[in-house]
């Protein structure tokens, strides 16, 4: 009798403890995101409806794509500060190339992807072979691409973005079961996230990226081709920035300042998603939710009707708080 009464609660405790351990293993970013999203839902019924959620995901997909690309570079221990300028270049350059002619859409996109490839290769070359810290190398590239794009179009945006080009950012698949309308942007994000997931978490190449971020010398000695891996990381980041740029332009239209500050926002999204600056740690899923969290924060501040300056200040506070929370919760586990 007494033994059973003693055993019974200890079993329940064990199960509770197992559940608690499971919960503790969930990365902090999910609690932060769902916390903010629930508040959003309480404040505005839009965020309770499927179309509202789909619109939210459409808006935030480009940032998530940028963040996945940036994460690859951050994981090798580098930075890529050129992605904001790449977005500006994509939008300005495409509007010039399209010249209001919808049939030019494939040409414009292939040209931008080619330019993105070139920028990534140059970034990788400068970091790997000229041995310049990527912070400075990509800072130089940021100035170069921005100046080059503005020089190319003559300082002000010219032409319009055609509807078929903009569709990637703001179009929907109609009549999809369950959700009715499914944004193209989200589909692109899902495909890219899945591809990167397999490259990053399931392939040797992914392990090599993390190894470089953890200890360059050790990975070099164990046969990782550090320079090649770094080059590919920068190329992936630039190409994702081009793709994200097409979607951002599709959603936001032509604007000279469209890419300004995006690199900082993206890095913040990555860090909220648990990426270590300095390399060696990252996860595609968590980073995607890091980007969602950033967008949710912007939307929350919008909903609260704060004027722009207060939004900046609160955003800064929340970034610090979120990163502190992520950092402290991962430190405890160690």
């Amino acid at each position: 009798m007494t033994t059973t009464t003693l055993k019974q609660p200890s079993k329940i405790l064990k199960i509770l403890k197992a559940i608690w351990n499971g919960i503790r293993r969930i990365p902090a970013v999910y609690f932060i995101f769902f916390g903010i999203f629930i508040v959003l839902g309480l404040l505005s019924p839009t965020y309770q409806s499927t179309p509202g959620i789909m619109a939210f995901l459409r808006r935030t997909s480009p940032l998530a794509i940028l963040a996945i690309g940036e994460m690859i570079v951050l994981s090798t221990g580098g930075y890529d500060l050129s992605i904001g300028s790449i977005v500006t270049m994509v939008v300005l350059g495409s509007s010039l190339l399209l010249n209001n002619d919808p049939t030019m859409m494939p040409t414009a996109i292939w040209t931008m992807l080619a330019l993105g490839l070139l920028i990534g290769l140059v970034n990788g070359f400068v970091v790997s072979y000229l041995k310049i810290p990527s912070f400075i190398a990509t800072l130089g590239m940021m100035l170069l691409v921005k100046g080059g794009a503005l020089y190319w179009v003559g300082g002000a945006p010219r032409g319009y973005l055609t509807e078929n080009w903009r569709a990637f950012g703001r179009g929907y698949f109609e009549n999809v079961p369950l959700v009715d309308r499914f944004p193209y942007a989200l589909a692109i994000l899902l495909i890219l996230a899945l591809v990167t997931y397999f490259i990053y978490h399931r392939s040797n190449f992914g392990k090599q990226i993390l190894a470089i971020g953890d200890n360059v010398r050790a990975s070099q000695l164990s046969g990782v081709r550090v320079r090649l891996v770094r080059m590919i990381a920068f190329v992936i980041s630039s190409l994702f920035a081009v793709i994200g740029g097409i979607m951002i332009g599709g959603f936001g239209g032509v604007n000279v300042t469209i890419g300004e500050g995006l690199e900082m926002q993206t890095i913040a999204a990555c860090v909220v998603g648990g990426v270590l600056l300095g390399g060696g740690k990252g996860s595609v899923m968590n980073v995607v939710f890091g980007a969602f969290t950033m967008e949710a924060i912007f939307n929350l501040l919008n909903l609260l009707g704060l004027p722009k300056p207060y939004k900046d200040a609160v955003q800064g506070l929340i970034i610090i708080a979120a990163v502190a929370y992520v950092a402290l919760s991962t430190r405890k586990k160690k």
Partner: peptide, 28 residues
């Protein structure tokens, strides 16, 4: 002015490269 920005970016990189390219350590 836009060409100025381009050259600035390039020269920052070149200035750093002028002494880092010989280093044996990998940059990050």
């Amino acid at each position: 002015p836009y060409l100025k920005t381009v050259l600035r970016g390039a020269i920052i990189v070149l200035a750093v490269a002028s002494y880092t390219y010989r280093s044996k350590k990998e940059a990050a």
